[in-house]
Amino acid sequence: MAESAGELSLHQRILGDIENRILSGEWQPGFRIPFEVALAKQYKCSRMTVNKALTQLAKTGLIERRRKSGSYVTQPRAQSAVLEIRDIKLEVQSLGLAYHFKLAAKSQRRSSAEDRQRLGLDVASPVLDIRCTHFAGSRPFCVEHRLINLTAVPDAAAETFEEEAPGQWLLNRVPWSAAEHTIRAVSADDVVATSLGIPIGTACLMVERRTWSNGANVTHVHLIYPGEQHSLVASFTPSQPK
């Protein structure tokens, strides 16, 4: 039996309502969507209309349908290109989720021996130490611990980093000429676990990056992601024989 115009408009309404609840963070990853019978009763429509809306949401990847169990909001899984410096905001938005960040700490000091090792500096210089958490919807996406060499980027000393995240600020203002990535697995300590809302000892993925601009050491950053929610991708071609 063909659906009426009213059923078709209800299909779009159901689709939009569920999308909005997921993208706003009201329905978190892992949340079980109400059963088709309940949704049909709520919207005063047929189960077929509800089923079509849920099927369309599953195709877009927003929900996962499990046989005999129901439909659930999917766990977002981000992918980063290993050989690129990507804006975390764009990573989050590529998942169809709203992005925001919270600055946890910011301090300026003379570099310590550890700071100089992280930045690759030969002599002591002023540095900016920044810690923040990035969010996808209402859920923590990754934690960032960044050092900025103020000799190379003096303007960073006056920046509040309340409106624009440190990485995004640097990408927009300091053209990088070289970067070094180190990727490894780490266990969440108490600070990371609290920031990401995960148990202490949870397996995480850490991207360690050092960046240069025209030979000057600009920044060093640790980006730590919950391991099961992030993957790294590298594209390459065979080397040409000489």
Rank of each mutant, 00 (worst) to 15 (best):
T74M: 13
L90F: 13
Y43A: 06
A5E: 12
T151M: 07
V123H: 02
E163G: 06
T60Y: 06
A234I: 10
R184W: 12
G167F: 08
K59W: 14
H100T: 04
Y43H: 07
R67E: 13
L8G: 13
K68L: 12
E26Q: 04
N20R: 15
V192R: 01
L205R: 07
V50S: 06
E159M: 06
V174E: 14
H220S: 04
A38E: 06
N20W: 15
K242S: 11
T151W: 09
Q28I: 07
I14H: 00
V192I: 11
L223D: 01
V233T: 11
S187F: 13
S46C: 03
P34F: 11
E228P: 05
P175M: 06
V50I: 12
I22Q: 01
A98H: 03
I148W: 02
E208N: 00
G70Q: 09
L54N: 00
L23F: 10
V191K: 09
E144Q: 04
G120N: 03
N172K: 10
L83P: 14
N20Q: 14
F35M: 07
Q75C: 12
G215S: 07
L57E: 00
V73L: 13
D87C: 10
L171M: 12
V186F: 10
I148P: 00
W169N: 08
A165S: 13
E228W: 00
L121E: 00
A193I: 04
S195L: 13
R32M: 12
D17L: 06
P238N: 06
V123E: 08
I18G: 00
V186H: 01
R109A: 10
E91T: 14
L171I: 08
N51Q: 15
C132L: 05
L150P: 08
A193M: 09
Q117A: 12
R118C: 09
A185M: 14
E162N: 15
M206T: 10
S235D: 13
W212T: 03
E64R: 03
S94E: 11
A157D: 08
N214L: 10
S4R: 04
P34Y: 09
I14V: 12
D17N: 14
R139Q: 15
L23S: 15
M1F: 08
P226W: 04
S138D: 08
A81V: 15
S195G: 08
